[in-house]
Computed example of a mutant assay.
Amino acid sequence: MKISLICVCNPETVKKKHWHGASADSWLVHLAVEADVSAGPAEWLEPVTDEEYNKLK
């Protein structure tokens, strides 16, 4: 990924369970703008445990 990269996800991709995040030696900023208010609010999934987070590379 590059600075200022814009990603557009189709509705079917957004409906699938997925996770955004960083690892212990990297970072991520996730800015989302929802335009389809008829689809309802975002569904937040279970938090990642410290153990899971620390295993990420």
Rank of each mutant, 00 (worst) to 15 (best):
M1V: 04
M1E: 01
I3W: 04
I3S: 14
S4Q: 03
S4K: 04
S4P: 00
S4A: 09
I6G: 07
N10M: 06
P11Q: 11
P11F: 07
T13W: 01
V14R: 00
V14E: 02
V14Q: 01
V14M: 08
K15G: 07
K16H: 02
K16N: 02
K17H: 01
W19H: 00
G21C: 03
G21Y: 06
A22K: 12
A22H: 10
A22P: 15
A22C: 14
A22S: 14
A22F: 10
S23K: 15
A24K: 15
A24F: 06
D25H: 07
S26M: 10
L28K: 08
L28V: 12
L28N: 12
L28E: 14
L28A: 04
H30D: 02
L31N: 11
A32T: 02
A32L: 11
V33H: 09
V33E: 08
A35M: 13
D36M: 08
D36V: 13
V37C: 06
V37Q: 12
E43N: 12
W44M: 06
E46V: 00
E46T: 00
P47D: 10
V48G: 05
T49G: 15
D50K: 14
D50L: 13
E51W: 10
E52F: 02
Y53P: 05
N54F: 11
N54R: 12
K55G: 06
L56V: 12
